[in-house]
Simulated assay, not measured.
Amino acid sequence: MTKEQTTADGFSYTLERTLEAPVAAVWNAWTTPEPYAQWAYAAPGSVEMDVRPGGKWKATVVTPDGGEFPLTGSYAEVEVNRRLVTGMDVPGKDEPALMTVELAEEGAHGTRLTVAQTCDTADQRDTAEQGTTMLLDSLTAFLKSAN
């Protein structure tokens, strides 16, 4: 069962889901290139991750119509199996757009996943929230197929 809660405040949003997978499996899916590429709409072989504070990441996202968008960023905070703060480089901005992912055990074999992000405008927030919701749907399906 997937529970979802959405909270929007100003130009921020928070999505919370309960996933039917252990914390370590969710962490692995989010921080390992091959599984990440499978659920995050990334081109095979395009994902690189140096998961440590100050480490860099990159991926090429493939849209449903076949468009490719290279993304880059860095990791601001890394607490294995608990918290991941990633920054995505935004053209024309000095500071990356930060996204916080928090994991907590839920029941015997589940994970409560909380994703939060603050954007510069309401439109950016709405677009980012929609994209993150799609990613979480894909992650949920990926974790179910991995069990």
Rank of each mutant, 00 (worst) to 15 (best):
E95K: 15
T133S: 11
A40T: 00
T100N: 05
A37P: 11
K93Y: 13
M88Q: 14
A116F: 01
V78E: 00
Y13H: 08
D50K: 11
D89K: 11
F142E: 06
L19E: 04
T72L: 10
D120M: 14
T133N: 08
E48I: 06
R125L: 04
F69E: 00
V23N: 07
A40Y: 00
T63H: 05
T100V: 15
G87K: 13
A97W: 02
A122E: 15
N147M: 08
D89N: 15
E48D: 09
N147P: 11
E95V: 10
T140K: 03
A108G: 08
P96H: 11
V115Q: 14
D65T: 06
L98R: 13
P35I: 07
V26N: 05
Y41F: 12
A76E: 11
Q38W: 02
K58M: 12
S145W: 00
E106C: 05
D137T: 09
K144L: 09
M49P: 08
E79Y: 03
F69V: 02
Y13S: 06
L103N: 12
V26Q: 08
N28I: 00
G67D: 02
M99D: 00
R52V: 02
G45F: 10
E34Q: 09
P22I: 02
T100Y: 05
V62I: 13
A43Q: 06
S46Y: 05
P96G: 12
R17H: 06
R52Y: 01
A128L: 02
K3M: 07
A25G: 07
G54A: 11
T121H: 15
V51M: 08
K56C: 06
E34R: 04
Q130G: 04
P70I: 12
A43G: 03
